[in-house]
Amino acid sequence: MTLLDPQSINTRISFAGLELCSPLTVASGTFGSGREYADFVDLAQLGALTTKGVSPVAWAGNEGARITEVSSGMLNSIGLQNSGVDHFIHHDLAWLQSHAPEAKVIVNVCGHEIDEFARVIEKLEDHHGVGMYELNISCPNVDNGGMSFGTDPKVAAQVVERVRPLTKKPLIAKLTPNVTDIAEIARSVEAAGADGISLINTVLGMAIDAHRFKPILKRKVGGLSGPAIKPIALRMVHEVSRAVSVPLIGLGGATTGIDVVEFMLAGATMVALGTANFKDPFATDKALIELKEFCALHDIENVSDLVGALKEI
């Protein structure tokens, strides 16, 4: 048997009706609005570029130390700091349209109240360059909204229902792992009209400075990300893929091309790299190369054939 040439592998995938050049994207909040990584990565080569969270008005974010490294991961307590949707349109989106017009953009949308999600989407809807919306109903670092929307299946559905009539573009609901039954939440947002689901957001965690007898983060808790949470994420992606029929974006500790394969086998159509970008700004490029090499080695011509291809033991 002749091995396939990695360059001949077809990495194209379709996700919620959009044709994308690869299954790779980035986790919201780890990649700015793309501009910050433009020295390192060709943004158009990403399957999609997921932006930081955008709210109707500027949010200041949290006080005190905002990150701390823990074993195989990090805790963050950024608090969705952003300059608001108007600033996002005039600075970030405008920059992307002039410097990376080919990039497919997923705008992560957040709000303290359900109507705030609607206000962001209403403002963005007329602007070119927005490919999809990702509804952030899962951030653990804000007091109002955020994760509280995503832990109750009824409220999660209400967010999707509120914004569904406002756009024909794909709506993705981003789910929190900090629930007892994530499949129930997934079924609920699918029924409410979500075109896709991304999971998982960060896992609620805590770090303590023993010598000072104090928590490290001012809010005491933060969101755990990085390789430490990958097994949790894989389990949840697998579980949700069997519960819904909409496509999934898998994320949570994915770092390498093999990690991308694992998430796809578990049922994800797309995979986001998050914390990995901090350590290596070329992480997405490298993961794509590794993904192609994996497919060549296993005689898989189309990357999309990996989706849900997990076998029984």
Binding site: D39, K52, G61, R66, I67, I78, F278, P281
Partner: peptide, 20 residues
């Protein structure tokens, strides 16, 4: 403390008279 070092993660925020 900072994660990315290149302006993306917003870990190293500081308040200034020009805003964050």
């Amino acid at each position: 403390l900072m994660a990315c070092g290149i302006g993306a993660c917003l870990s190293c925020n500081v308040a200034t008279k020009q805003g964050p």
